[in-house]
Write a protein that binds this DNA or RNA. Structure first.
Lengths: 247, 247
DNA sequence: CGAGCATTTGACACATGTCAAGATATGTGG
DNA sequence: CCACATATCTTGACATGTGTCAAATGCTCG
């Protein structure tokens, strides 16, 4: 059933996330140790990778595709609490039980490590532990940034915030000149966007239509977005338009 | 002006947060190194400890009292993104500029470390780095828990969630038998609660009145709260009442 | 070509925000 | 110790943004 997507590299040296993932700071020796406990897994869009409450017997990195972390209340209300992009880390060393659902939002490849050996490796290779601390602190900042969005922004600002985050990420990968229009594909359905933003999918749809009418964005099809003026979008997001963002 | 509150211990061995803070796993030698770069600072309720955008030249632990992290938009909307209790860590090794305001919500004592030496110590004493990773992962979980509150809960559920968090914390410190009424003082003004919950202070006030009318809570004065039935409160919070909480 | 999703749009309800007044605590100076 | 001044909190009336329910439209893929 599960299709195996191509992993077009075989060793860590050629890995596309080599310099950004949890293994970023590792030297050749350390990589060799990681190679021994790693394996690739592929998931198709929509598949659940880990169920909240499950035993977690691996941790790992997203190699390609997008995954989401979601929490669900008993009555079915759900909130996405994290969006995992290539190089992001999944799982928590030292914890047995998964606290959220992890789902593949798009087709996805993960580089997994068996949990026990990985935890042991953490103790002996400070480079891994240190990198994981950095990444966790970054995620904490991102989560707090998102708390402002959820708690204080209007629906329109929420949509603009989400679009500018995705646009910024795409820009940081494809390194275009930073003026001129930005173009990308939305990797999320309206429902996923709603779950991320704490809105309903109807409100998401309405606000996207409104932004389109006001020419803040334009759409080709449902998913292909063009942003003629990034500064304008960031104003709509309620952020400082001078983009004061520290990477 | 700034009153100096009593710090009734002089060395780390007698410190009330010795076994919970970033130094928890340190052995005697490591503590000695920390002693050399530490100093205490006191703040009175309402004082700002660090302004967003400021240079940060120290990191540290909350010894007593409560601090809050807040983000502010240009038009003045503010969202609290973290509540720091005794033993919680302030600041981020490897970062120059503070991303949020840090304020003393109550009178507060911090155990500060000069940033540079602390960062060096992190490199040489894995116990500190490891503990900081643990604590950061815990904070990340708390932040994500809070994203569900902000994004999906009603005003009444938000208030109940906040009360149950504070109640749970107080219970974990004062270790009462876990049935029977719980009593505590609210350390937050209605406005601070509103900023934490993404509400207005009027809505906070109304919902507290409503919970009081429905006998979920009772008040003696404005700040002194009694919870006759913790399970009931957690139902109101929309959480599983069987308290499925992993410490 | 038709079935099944994803998305858009409309009408209406309701929760929460806004603005304004009063009430209750808290502290200060006479 | 009292009286006033100030901050905090409560309550009311009304406005509005977002949710809910329902139907129509547009895609995608067998």
């Amino acid at each position: 059933m599960t299709p195996i997507f191509k992993v077009d590299h075989t060793n860590c040296q050629d890995c596309p996330i080599r310099h950004r993932a949890v293994c970023a700071h590792c030297d050749a020796d350390e990589l060799e140790e990681l190679e021994e406990i790693k394996y690739y897994r592929s998931f198709e869009a929509g598949q659940t990778i880990i169920w909240s409450g499950d035993q977690m017997n691996f941790v790992g990195s997203v190699v390609s595709g997008i995954a989401s972390l979601t929490q669900t209340m008993e009555d079915g209300r759900t909130q996405m609490v994290g969006l995992l992009l290539p190089s992001d880390f999944v799982g928590r060393p030292g914890r047995e039980i998964a606290p959220y659902d992890v789902q593949a939002t798009t087709d996805l490849v993960m580089c997994c490590f068996r949990k026990k050996p990985f935890e042991e490796l953490m103790g002996t290779t400070p480079h891994i532990a240190h990198r994981l601390l950095q990444m966790t602190l970054d995620e904490l900042d991102a989560a707090r940034e998102w708390m402002l969005v959820l708690g204080r922004k209007t629906a329109r600002e929420k949509i603009a915030s989400l679009l500018s985050i995705i646009a910024r990420r795409d820009a940081s990968i494809s390194k275009k000149g930073n003026s001129g229009p930005i173009v990308f594909d939305l990797p999320l359905t309206r429902e996923a966007m709603a779950d991320y933003l704490g809105l309903t999918l109807e409100t998401v749809s309405r606000q996207i239509s409104a932004l389109k009418k006001d020419q803040v964005i334009s759409l080709q099809g449902k998913r292909h977005v063009t942003i003629p003026d990034m500064g304008r979008l960031m104003e709509e997001a309620g952020d400082d338009s001078d983009g004061g963002f520290l990477v």
